[in-house]
Design a binder for these strands. Structure first.
Lengths: 213, 213
DNA sequence: ACGGCTTTCTGACGGGGCGTCAGATACGAT
DNA sequence: ATCGTATCTGACGCCCCGTCAGAAAGCCGT
């Protein structure tokens, strides 16, 4: 709960001045960097603050604990994710549908590459049951999932997809594919698949499962 | 590397006697329990050993660090996963194909529910780049993915699936769906989807994507 | 430019987990 | 029962955690 009505708050709920806002931002950046470098399990508050040249006590002025900082990062990542919905608007039923599917995959890949360390932690904590991270994940994916659900409903109405599939579950499955497959890239490459195989295959899978074409 | 040629080894590579094997097993069980209860981030060696009534030093006789224990658990889980391949053998091309897909989903769900805490950690560490966990994950999924790849190749040969999809990537995507969706169950339920919707939808998605029917 | 007030930062501390080692204890063979 | 080996653990120094009281920096009115 770091942001309310555009006011950035410290750990004790006070409103921050400009100097404090800068410090907070630097701490978040440092957290993100260390997260990407060495993983959550090795994330230490001492290291975060050392990185920005301040002391551990400072950290606690902005975040009640590490989780609070991680949550703030997750919420930042959400802002990058929401625009992806533009690739889904108006469906993929026109003849350039498959192309648009590919563009969506590309856009998601970029988003993922920029935020993967944070997203991994967000998903881990969400799956472990933490309500705040659950909420953050839902909010991030909601727009995409709703847009995809609409595509499925349309395809069902047109008789291209069976009525037996549940639109929301189908949409969530598509997010699952794309979210889960990106970290596999190196492994897939090691199996001799050409580099575009992943992108193209995922695009076709999404296209088929969402439009029934 | 806790096991070589059926001999169970301690952290220093020595062969364990029966008493030691029991202790090691109890430590692993305790680790698994605490993992499920409170997540990786709060996993403490002190707690693990307290749980079995021994001291932290004992832990280090069997595992060089927590990761080693987690890896051992991941390898145990693999043993539960391999038999699932029986649901894929001979393909889903007969008329009971969709039924068999449903049974596979059920079997995987059971496997997941029994092992989810460990699998989550395995996947996290694998995605963070740890080679040992990468290896463990690959080994666990390999049989399933190979079987699914064969199904895709068959469907492509019969003209039911486009040649443009890569069998291995497709198979991995199916694993992604099923692995990733199970933790979402509560969230999907909260959206008013009936309880079987997930099972049935995933079964249909797998069936369609793997057989092209 | 100075004093006083507020915001922001930090040194220092008790608490506790980490990982190691030397010595204690339990076991099995004879 | 004794000995040798396998197994266990108490105790220690190290480092991170989270807190608090006080220091430093910034701001404002005069």
């Amino acid at each position: 709960m770091a942001r309310t009505n555009n006011l950035i708050l410290g750990a004790d709920g006070r409103v921050l001045g400009t100097r404090a806002e800068t410090t907070r931002a630097r701490l978040l950046e440092s957290t993100s960097k260390l997260l990407a470098e060495s993983g959550v399990l090795d994330l230490k508050i001492v290291d975060i603050t050392r990185e920005v040249g301040s002391s551990p006590a400072t950290f606690y002025q902005y975040f009640v604990d590490v989780d609070a900082a991680l949550l703030a990062l997750a919420e930042q990542a959400t802002a990058d994710e929401l625009p992806l919905v533009s690739h889904l608007e108006n469906g993929w039923d026109a003849e350039d549908g498959l192309t648009r599917a590919g563009e969506f995959v590309d856009a998601y890949t970029t988003f993922w590459d920029d935020n993967n360390a944070v997203l991994r932690v967000r998903n881990l904590k969400a799956e472990e049951g933490d309500p705040a991270f659950r909420e953050a994940r839902s909010k991030a994916n909601l727009l995409l999932i709703e847009a995809m659900s609409k595509m499925v409903e349309q395809a069902q109405a047109d008789g291209r997809l069976p009525a037996s599939i549940h639109p929301f579950v189908t949409a969530t499955s598509m997010i699952a594919i794309i979210e889960r497959l990106l970290p596999y890239r190196t492994e897939i490459a090691r199996r001799g698949a050409p580099p575009e195989a992943l992108r193209d295959t995922v695009a076709v899978l999404l296209y088929r499962s969402l439009t029934g074409r």
